[in-house]
Write a protein that binds this DNA or RNA. Structure first.
Lengths: 181, 181
DNA sequence: TCAAATACTGGCCGATCGGTCAGCTATTGT
DNA sequence: ACAATAGCTGACCGATCGGCCAGTATTTGA
């Protein structure tokens, strides 16, 4: 076997960063190839097509979620909520670039000059963020919120991993009304 | 002036629906023209380019937000939070297709088979959704959450306007820990 | 009645997209 | 030493994209 000067791993590394930065549709095969230092044709030697690259990037997330669900299956109440927070923060940190991909196109649109800086209004909402709800909308709410945390943290990679993990866990627990132990 | 058989309003109506359904990048000028029943060249007679269509669609949102901010400027505490909820729900309903545009690409990616159905995990998070935080992440959190509400409600347009408005307002107030009076 | 202006269109353009293919190169096992 | 093969590439393909333009039809005000 000839030495692989440009490996699959290099391609995946370039792809996940570019997808996270410019979105899936906003990243061309040529962009990835240039970043990885190889030709576009080399990409399609290692992967059947562009979509297969994204598929491989997202593939590990599914089983990890399934495993977390399994760990939560036997738990109830506060213990379950605490384990869910810990597990989700851990997953979000390990797959933070993947999560960023999901939010990239939102980023691109939300930063358009026609749209307002929503901070001032949201500030007032968060002044008294609390309450309880089992309405179906809130599940989407909570899911998007978790993604929102990662969106913020993903661009602050200078923060040490462990510090970030502790901060996120503490913030999530506090927001859920659980003791931050 | 010749009679406008295909007006600017028709084009904008087609565009906002298609952008909301398939995203900005996922909608071509030809798609819009076909839906509006005119030629692609006619689009570019009424609008300087594709981006100008999106710009015009998003344009009214900014001033409305600014006006809401002005109304909130003199308020404090619970009164401010309540007015913010009412105003945001109202804005979200009036511009629900615009908001859907922002979330469309998230939709496309989040429904990939490699990704898990996050409902089971999020269920446990929402079991005890409460708490309080003034961390900077939470502003993004709250903003994404508000978008999440709309994402859910936008696909349920069969619900009467007033019912939806009341439900959203009540849910938001309850989640903020304010009396739903 | 008739130029002027508006509304609109088919056809075309260059650029870029994802993807294919024949062939080159370097390393491998024998 | 030498096929075999993995890794990689330049060149090219058809499709599609946003955008341009000359030209046509319709309605207008004078």
């Amino acid at each position: 076997m000839a030495r692989a000067t440009t490996t699959r791993a290099d391609i995946l590394d370039s792809a996940v960063r570019l997808f996270a930065a410019h979105g899936f549709r906003g990243t061309s095969l040529q962009d990835i190839a240039t970043d990885a230092g190889c030709s576009k044709a080399s990409l399609l030697y290692h992967f059947t097509n562009k979509d297969a690259i994204l598929t491989e990037l997202l593939a590990p997330v599914g089983p990890e979620f399934a495993e977390l669900e399994g760990r939560l299956a036997g738990l109830r109440g506060e213990e379950a909520a605490r384990a869910a927070v810990t597990g989700l923060v851990d997953l979000s940190l390990r797959f933070r670039l993947q999560v960023k991909i999901l939010l990239q196109d939102v980023d691109a649109l939300i930063n358009r000059p026609e749209l307002p800086d929503a901070d001032h209004i949201v500030e007032r909402l968060t002044e008294a963020l609390s309450g309880r709800s089992d309405a179906p909308e809130v599940r989407v709410w909570a899911w998007m919120a978790m993604l929102g945390i990662i969106l913020t943290s993903a661009s602050e990679c200078v923060i040490p991993e462990e510090t970030l993990r502790a901060e996120l866990t503490r913030g999530a627990l506090r927001t859920l009304g659980l003791p931050t132990g």
